[in-house]
Design a protein around this nucleic acid. Structure first.
Length: 116
DNA sequence: CTACTGACCGCGA
DNA sequence: GTCGCGGCCAGTA
């Protein structure tokens, strides 16, 4: 069978689902892990296409600077920050210190088996 | 077909 | 910290 055009979606979702509890990852990292290096936008699009009710830690996905992708005050922003805090992730001014909660090279390798 | 937009990224100044 | 530029893919007008 032919590969569905949503294969990228599936890979992205899988990569997001692989983020451990209490940790976060950037769009670029997800895209790279999904086999789509440089397609960070695709990740953003995919997240916008996530069906409501689907079990996916979308809130663990942040920008490369640790900033929440949603505009401050918006529904998604509140929801994401709230969920992150609920997991023990420090959200300050709509931003998360990736240096602390981001996936380290070791952990990243342990999770996704990237050579190092 | 072109043009614009979007839960983006990285570099340079 | 800011701003600008190019690149990337998909949907819409």
């Amino acid at each position: 069978m032919d590969k569905p055009k949503s294969e990228a979606h599936a890979r992205i979702f899988a990569a997001i689902a692989a983020i451990p509890h209490g940790r976060v990852a950037s769009y670029g990292a997800i895209a790279a892990r999904a086999g789509l290096p440089g397609r960070a936008r695709l990740v953003g699009r995919a997240l916008g296409e996530v069906p409501d009710g689907m079990e996916l830690p979308w809130f663990r996905v942040l920008r490369s600077s640790g900033q929440i992708a949603f505009p401050p005050g918006s529904r998604g922003f509140k929801e994401q920050s709230k969920r992150l805090k609920a997991e023990g992730v420090e959200v300050k001014n709509g931003r998360v210190p990736l240096a602390t909660f981001g996936l380290d090279a070791d952990l990243d390798r342990a999770l996704w088996g990237m050579p190092g």
